[in-house]
Every structure is written in C-alpha cells, then in structure tokens.
Amino acid sequence: MNKKTEAAPDSWDMVTCGLHWISAIWVTGLLGLGLVMVNLVAASGPKFELYQLHKSWGFVFGIVLIARLVWKLFVQRPKALGAGVLHKAGVANQNVMLVMLLVLVVSGYALASFSIIPIPIQILGWNVPALLSSDMVMEQRATAVHHVIAFALIILVFAHSGAALFHHFVLKDRTLARMLKKSS
C-alpha cells in the first residue's frame, strides 16, 4: 500500500486494476440493460424481469463501488503521463464519473424505495429493505436524476475510453497498458 507521501509509483496496483475493469464491464452492462429495458422492451412481463435484474445488479454494484472508493483513499495515482489542461480534464473526468456512479446507485435505490408499489430489490432471494417511505413526487425526482446522470455518464464514458485509446494508439504511452498490467 502506497502512502501519499511516498514517490508516485509507475503503475496502478492490482486491486485498483481489478476494480476498474470489473466496474467497466458492470457499468456497461447496467447502462445497456437500463436503456434496453426502459426504451426497447414493450411487453409488461419481460420488462418487469429486466427491471428487477437491473435493480439487483445495480444494488450489488453499489457494494463494488464503495469498495473502490474506499480503496482509492489508500492508494496513490501513478506518475502522470501527461500535463496541461487536457490531462487535468481527463483526471477530473475520472473523478466525476465516480461521483456519477454513486449518484446512480443512490438515485436508483431511492426511486425503487419511494415507489408506491411494493416491489423489493431482490438479491439471491433476499429483499433489500425499502427505507424511504412511498412518495410519488420524490420517486419522479429520483427517476429524473437517474435518467439525466445515466445519459451524462454515457458521454463521459465515451470521452474516457476515447482518451485511453488516444494515449495508446496516438501518443503511444503506457496510460492504458498500466491499467491492464503491472509495469515491467
């Protein structure tokens, strides 16, 4: 474990790499599932099942996200491979995405919990308690937040992956490589 006072390492640690790629797959899945279930599936039964799936996986993702945020407190960023405004924007984008993910988990839980229809989030047969009491107006607000942040996140994810590919194929530096493997 690196302390902030120590010299910046060359690479990301294995735990950060692992959490990063698990999140990448998980978030892509939740974004895709969310868009498909809301906009493309018209039959009530299948739509319901996809919503339940999204709620369960979204909630469990919240646990992964908390682990990731806690871990982030204890590790140091590797040496910067860039400088200037674009570099600062890139780092800021990463932090904003983490905040957005937290907002998505919280607003997702909130909209499900505020619902006047008692449909629990289920994890392996366990019903996640709905701690917020039914409120139609608050449910609509939480849904609006979830919707806007989800679409904003999609844009930032494209910017983030585009930047990573730009580093790899155009700048030909180790930005992408060091998130994939330890430095040699």
């Binding site: 039959a43 009530s44 039964g45 299948p46 319901f48 099942e49 339940q52 229809i117 008692p118 449909i119």
Partner: peptide, 15 residues
Amino acid sequence: DVGSDMLASLIKGSA
C-alpha cells in the same frame, strides 16, 4: 399468467 413468473408472483402476492 402475465408472461413472466416473476411478475405473476408479485400479482399473486398480498399486494
């Protein structure tokens, strides 16, 4: 039968 066992069990339930 509503085209989903999951939705059917909600409908059959106490709600």
